[in-house]
Simulated assay, not measured.
Amino acid sequence: MALSVIALILSAGAACGYIQTQSHNFHYIYGCYESDDVRVDAVVDGDVVAYADFNKEEVVWVLPHLPQPAKDFKKMAYGVAKASTAHCHSVLGKAKNADPGAPLRQDPPDIYIYTRYEGEASVMNTLFCVANHFYPPTINFTWTKNGVELTEGVANLRYRHNRDGTFHMISTLLFTPQPGDHYICTVEHQAAKVPVSKSWELKENKMSRVSPEAVFFGVSVVLCLMGFGTGVFFFIKQPN
C-alpha cells in the first residue's frame, strides 16, 4: 500500500479545489519530488493557465489577457500554492517512512531535434530540442556549436505533464546556420546512465556540390555537340 501511495504522489501529485461551471471546469494540481522540485499549476479545461514561481514568489499567468477577477485572486493564489507544497512534502515524508525500501520511479527521456523552418544558409532559424516521457522532472539541456558550449540564444520552456504521469520539456536555440557548422543538444537526466545527445547540421544543396570546373566542362561539351550538329546539318543540305 505504501508503494502505491508514493507512486501516486511522485507521478501525479494531488488534484484539489475542483470547480465546474456550465461551460468550464477549474482545478489546481501540485506535486513534490525527490529532487526537491515542486510544481503547482492552475488548470482550466485541461490547459495550464497559471503556475507558481517560487523563485519570484508569485503566480505567473500564461493567458495573454488576464481578467480583473484573476488579477485580484493573484496574491491569494500564491498563498494557496505555498500551503499546497507544505502539505505535499508532509504526505510524501509519511509515505516514504511507511516503506523506506520502496523503489522510486525513473524514466529516461526520448530526445528529438528539429528546426522551425527548413534549413537555409545565412537565414535565421530556431532549433528545438524536445525531451519527452521522462520522470522525475529534473532535467538539464546543453547546446554546443562545433564543440563550444552556447548560452546566447538559448531558452528553456517550462516542463509540462503527460497523461501517463511523465513530463516533457523543450529547449530552443535561435541561430543562423552556416555550411560546416555542427550543433548538438545534450540532455542529462538521472534515469539515463549517460547524457543523451542529438545533432543537427545544414544539409548541402546537391547543386552546391557541383564544382565550377565541372559546370564549365559540361557547358563546353554541350556547345561542342551543338556545333557538330549544326555542321552536319549544313553538310547534308549542301547542293550536289
Results as ranks from 00 to 15, higher is better:
residue 94 K to P: 00
residue 178 Q to W: 11
residue 158 R to C: 00
residue 147 G to V: 06
residue 132 N to I: 09
residue 106 Q to T: 00
residue 46 G to T: 11
residue 101 G to C: 04
residue 82 K to N: 15
residue 107 D to M: 13
residue 111 I to Y: 03
residue 155 A to E: 09
residue 165 G to N: 02
residue 180 G to S: 07
residue 123 V to N: 00
residue 118 E to Y: 15
residue 158 R to D: 02
residue 174 L to T: 15
residue 153 G to N: 01
residue 101 G to N: 13
residue 168 H to D: 05
residue 138 T to G: 05
residue 52 A to L: 03
residue 46 G to Y: 13
residue 150 L to V: 04
residue 89 H to F: 13
residue 125 N to P: 06
residue 119 G to S: 14
residue 136 P to W: 06
residue 103 P to M: 11
residue 144 T to C: 00
residue 91 V to P: 00
residue 146 N to W: 06
residue 88 C to Q: 02
residue 168 H to Q: 04
residue 82 K to P: 01
residue 141 F to V: 08
residue 142 T to N: 10
residue 126 T to A: 07
residue 152 E to K: 14
residue 126 T to V: 12
residue 129 C to M: 08
residue 170 I to D: 13
residue 96 K to Y: 05
residue 103 P to L: 14
residue 126 T to D: 01
residue 133 H to K: 09
residue 143 W to P: 09
residue 98 A to L: 09
residue 142 T to I: 12
residue 172 T to G: 13
residue 137 P to M: 01
residue 150 L to K: 12
residue 170 I to E: 14
residue 94 K to R: 11
residue 175 F to R: 01
residue 119 G to C: 11
residue 108 P to E: 12
residue 179 P to Y: 15
residue 121 A to P: 07
residue 117 Y to T: 13
residue 165 G to F: 08
residue 113 I to D: 04
residue 99 D to Q: 07
